[in-house]
């Protein structure tokens, strides 16, 4: 805008003008981007334009929330995890069990599942504080596998390999009944994704969010400006677990079914892949990635039903070969006009 004009006033009186300008410059970083509005409008439009695609849209919304939650630890704090589905699956089982035995109100089930997943996240967060990326990958992988095995062994509670079924949910908030076509389910998931993303967005521009990025960017310097890294990582991991658990709960509630597959390793890998595709550290990477990943997966499984996993693997290999660094910055390779606004968002 009037950058030149600002520049001249600054030279005239560096201190006084720099101050009022500073808050404006700081606010500029957190203002709503054009692409954000587009993506939410598109998501609502999809409800009207693609009435027969509710199930895949719901799947995308759930995966997106799951990915956005992982972005908080991976993209912001720089903590790698191969076991994020531990929280997704845990949330799904909690939601399923609640609906089966206690309360069929989806929103209450969602919140309880989120809180309990957060507790699990808090308890396991201490395991990821020590060691390098490699140890963290192994630890988180281990947590994920242990959860899967627990669900499998505790058949009296979880239904074992058969999973949990035979539960149905009351209308959302007593108003919107789940229908056969999944229309309510999609809007419900979309609403939760929206609220979740907005909460994460607030966190992203808070001092806390900034400190997470500092820990990722340069842990040694972060310590030298008094950032208590361990405390911050524990908090971020817990929040991420809450939202991952909610994503799992959404899956259980919209499908009225919880299978042991919610804790399967491939889910942890998928959600990482989603972030690799969409880009990390600006939240919407999880959403873009979820859309692309689900569409590509869906398309491949139609085109080549037997070998689609091969192509997913191939895409992963290519993405990794191109390089993690360039991937995280794929937006910069777009033409200037598109990249400008997103660029600042990170």
């Amino acid at each position: 805008m009037s950058a030149v004009q600002q520049e001249t006033t600054v030279t005239a009186n560096p201190t006084a003008d720099a101050e009022s300008r500073a808050t404006r410059l700081m606010k500029r970083r957190s203002r709503v981007r054009f692409y954000e509005i587009v993506i939410w409008l598109a998501a609502i439009a999809a409800y009207f334009v693609l009435p027969s695609k509710m199930l895949i849209l719901t799947e995308i919304a759930i995966l997106a929330l799951f990915a956005v939650s992982l972005d908080l630890v991976l993209g912001f704090a720089g903590i790698v995890s191969l076991g994020h589905t531990a929280f997704f699956g845990f949330g799904a089982y909690i939601a399923g069990l609640l609906a089966l035995h206690f309360i069929a109100e989806p929103v209450i089930g969602l919140i309880v599942a989120g809180i309990l997943s957060g507790v699990l996240g808090l308890l396991t967060s201490f395991l990821i504080l020590r060691g390098s990326d490699l140890t963290r990958l192994m630890t988180t992988l281990g947590i994920g596998l242990m959860m899967a095995e627990l669900a499998n062994q505790m058949a009296w509670l979880t239904g074992g390999a058969d999973g949990l079924s035979g539960f149905s949910l009351n209308p959302v908030l007593g108003l919107f009944e789940f229908d056969l076509f999944g229309k309510t389910g999609y809007l419900y998931c979309l609403a939760v994704l929206f609220i979740g993303t907005m909460i994460m967005r607030r966190i992203a521009f808070s001092p806390f969010g900034l400190s997470l990025k500092a820990i990722k960017g340069n842990p040694m310097r972060a310590a030298m400006i008094a950032v208590p890294a361990r405390k911050r990582i524990v908090t971020a991991y817990t929040i991420a677990a809450v939202f991952a658990g909610m994503a799992g709960a959404l899956l259980a509630q919209t499908t009225s079914f919880v299978s042991p597959d919610v804790l399967a390793f491939h889910r942890s890998a998928d959600v990482l892949l989603v972030l690799v595709i969409g880009g990390t550290g600006y939240l919407y990477g999880g959403i873009f990635g979820a859309v692309l990943f689900t569409l590509v997966k869906d398309w491949l499984s139609v085109v080549t039903p037997q070998y689609w996993m091969f192509y997913i693997g191939l895409i992963l290999v290519v993405l990794v070969l191109i390089g993690r660094d360039r991937l995280a910055r794929w937006i910069e390779y777009l033409p200037e006009r598109f990249s400008k606004s997103k660029e600042e968002g990170r």
Partner: peptide
């Protein structure tokens, strides 16, 4: 400065 002032843990208010 936020860390020095002890507000670095605030995750709800924008730093701006």
């Amino acid at each position: 400065i936020a860390e020095r002032e002890g507000v670095g843990h605030n995750l709800w208010r924008s730093i701006a």
